[in-house]
Design a protein around this nucleic acid. Sequence first.
DNA 1: CGCATTTGACCTGCGC
DNA 2: GCGCAGGTCAAATGCG
Length: 478
Amino acid sequence: MYKKLTNNIEDTCNNDLSNAAVTQSSPMMSFNGKRLVVDEIDFFTEKKKKSEDVDNQLVHHQMELPINTNLDLLITKSSTSNRSNMEEGPSESRDNTRNKFAAMLAELHIINAENQHLRELVDQVNNKYNDLHKDLTKLMQKQHKNEINGAIEEKDKRDDMIISRSFLDIGIATKEDPSQQHSEAKLQESKNITELMECKNRDVVELDSGKDSAKSRRDKHESSETMSMIKKARVSVRTKTDSSMISDGCQWRKYGQKMAKGNPCPRSYYRCSMGTACPVRKQVQRNAEDLSVLITTYEGQHNHVLPPTAKAIASTTSAAASMLLSGSMLSSDGLIYPNILESASLPFSQNLATLSTSAPFPTITLDLTQSTTNNSSQLLQGAPQDNQHIYSLLSPLLAQKFMSSATNIFYQNHQTKVSSLHGSQGTETASFVDTVNAATAAITGDPKFSAAVMAAITSIIGSSHPNINGTSGDPALQ
DNA sequence: CGCATTTGACCTGCGC
DNA sequence: GCGCAGGTCAAATGCG
């Protein structure tokens, strides 16, 4: 038994040491490679657990098999009281145990070093993120200055698609900057679309303070329309309930009620009252055709910290809104790409999520009334028929899907734009798209990993930009 | 008394 | 310009 136990420990040590060695030789966080560490806690769980297991085994081993290590490292009662017994053990066993203990110590040192290394990498990522953010702001300012110097007629011809061009220009400019890592730019671009709009808005404010011209006013008007579009992107949720309002974890204050045309039931207007001046609003109305169906439409992003139950739906709406906006704006004709619908559909129900372009503002509808078809019944099986639970279950999948689809669409359009401008660079971008697709597939294939990645990205963005949806932690998807 | 809800007035955008 | 519909505001009202 003793030999068996020591063998186990030895195997564990060898495995961990070899793993640590591999890890050391190949940095875990790399934008160019496929491994990306976003939160050291998540990625250490396995190793940590392993290490703890080793420690437990060691302690257990020492408690049961008192052996003098001659290092006098142990201060436990057993180690001192049984010293006489230890000295009577075979010297070979003492050597083995000593070696193993030393190996474990070495492993601990390696893990600590690795931990430190990863911390540094996370810091670097944060720093690069901040740098890119600054560069982006500068580019936006530069672009606005160029526009001001340009012809006014040209400006008049511009329509609401100004945003899409801005997005593409930003992406290309970032990509062409040799000082920035290619994939870092991509990661940055996909992180938070709403942040770009904040930059845009900030530029307008700066312009207004500097030049009070008709042109700047026109820019402001256009940007206000832009912001309005951002704000107006909506996510509609259909649920079957008898209550007048679904419970989504947020606090709402009713500020209006209207009779809508063609519907005997009034439409209620609610404003989020959890935070001061929170821009999020929602409309609640019963379906005219089926009065048991309650249609709740969310609009905007929270500017405050949300409780976990509210985070679920908020992150979903944020991600959906980001997807809607990125997808629709990247289209050359201003329409939402049809493949969004396909990619946005949940894996367990093709009819669960639908997009509407007929409405004044892009709206995605999540139909939670169809829970009896396909695999959704399996997914929801055993879960209480409570909206909060449904959201909790639904949200991560949706947010994940929306984020990946938005990212893919962004890059696909980006590729088209770059190819047309630079010709030969298309292949490079194409390979990157492949990489993104592969990464997306890997992420979507492993729920735990995707959850960890999303949580980490959310926490990183959230910590850097407290104004952005605490959901998002959801931006765009919170 | 403070807060939430109600409800009529008002604003805005759009189509004719 | 006018009317309609959707959305918002704010004073009045209700409730704990």
